[in-house]
Amino acid sequence: MRRDLLVYGGAVLVAVLVGLALAAGGGAAPDVAGRALWDGMFGSPYAFGSALNTTAVLALIATGFTIAHRAGLVNVGGEGQMALGGIAATAVGVSLPAGTPAVLALTALLIAGFAGGALWAGVAAWLRVRRGVNEVITTLLLNFVGLCLVLLAVHEEALLRQPVTSADTLPQSEPLVEAARLPLLGPPESPATIAIVLAAVSVIVAALLLRHTATGTRLTAVGMSEPAAARLGLPVGRLQAGSLAVAGGLAGVAGATLIATVPYVLAEHFTSGYGFTGLVVGLLARGSLTAVAGISLAFGLLASGGINLQLAAGVPAASVQVVQSVLIICVAGAVIFRKGAAR
C-alpha cells in the first residue's frame, strides 16, 4: 500500500516536472502556466463543470473495462462502442415525439445507448466465446468500423443526417428533442449534467457487484482460472460474454451522454478519443473501482485544464497529453518493474 502511494506519487512528480519543462519550452513561465492550468480546472464553474462531464465519460468506460477485466477480458473497444451507443441514442433522441416526458425520453435514450454499445461488444464476445478469437484484436478493430459507421450515419440523409438545405449544411444529425437532453446539475454557468451522477452510480453498483455478489465472485474465478472455473461448472462462456457486453454497454451509455450534452447532435469524431483515454484509466486503476473514480476525475480535470493552458498561457494543449502519457509510462513501468523483481 505504501509502495503504491510511492509509485503514484513519484509518477505524478515526474509528470509535473515534464509538464513544467514543456510549459517553459512553450514560452510560459512556470507560475503563469500553473495558474492557467489551475484556472482551467477549478477557476470557474464552467471549467469545473466541463471537467465533470469528461470525468463521467471516462469513469463509465473505465468501469466497464474493469468488469470485463475481472473476467479476464481486455476491452480495447471503448471508442467503437461509444460510437454505436451514440448512434443508437441519436436515433432514439431525434425521433421521439415532442410531448414525451423527460424521464421517459432519457430512459429510452440511455437504454438505446447501452444496447448499441453492448451489441457492438457482443460481436467481439460472440467471436471470443464461440470461435476463440482474441477479444483484444476484435474489439480494437471494431473501433474503426464503429467510427466509420458514425461517418456514414451523419453523411446519409436516409440515416441520421439533418435535411440538407444549402451547401453549408453540416454533416451532422438534427438536434435531439428537448426532453432527451441531459438536465444540468444546477449550479449557475456550470455545464455539468447529471452524467456525473450516472457515472457515480455505475461505479458504486459495479463495486458492489464485483465484491459482494455471487456473480462477482464467479467473474473473478473465470478471470483467474478459466479451466478451474469450467471444471466447477461455472458458465464460463456466458460470464465472459456477459461481462464484455456490459463493458460495451457502459461505453455506449458514455456515448449517449456525449450526444445528450451540448450541442445535442451526432457529429463526426464526437467520441474524441475518450474511449482510449477511458481504457487507460481502467488500466491504471488495476481493478480497483475507487481508483477508477479518482483517476477519471484527475484526467477530467487535466483535460479541461489543458484547454485553458492553451487559451491563457499559449502552451499547446497537447502538452497535457504528453504529461498524461508520462504518468502512464511511470505507473505501468513501475508495475512491470516490481513484478520482474518479485520473480
Binding site: 459482494h212 455471487a214 483467474m224 478451474a228 461448472g233
Partner: peptide, 30 residues
Amino acid sequence: HEGCVTGMSVAENLFLGRLREFRRFGLLDR
C-alpha cells in the same frame, strides 16, 4: 490448472460451484 483458483480464498474455492446456497438479499453471505 483446473483443480483450484490459487488467487482466491479457501472459502471461495470450497464453495465456488455452489455460491447459490450462500445468497442473502441478492448479496453473497460471506
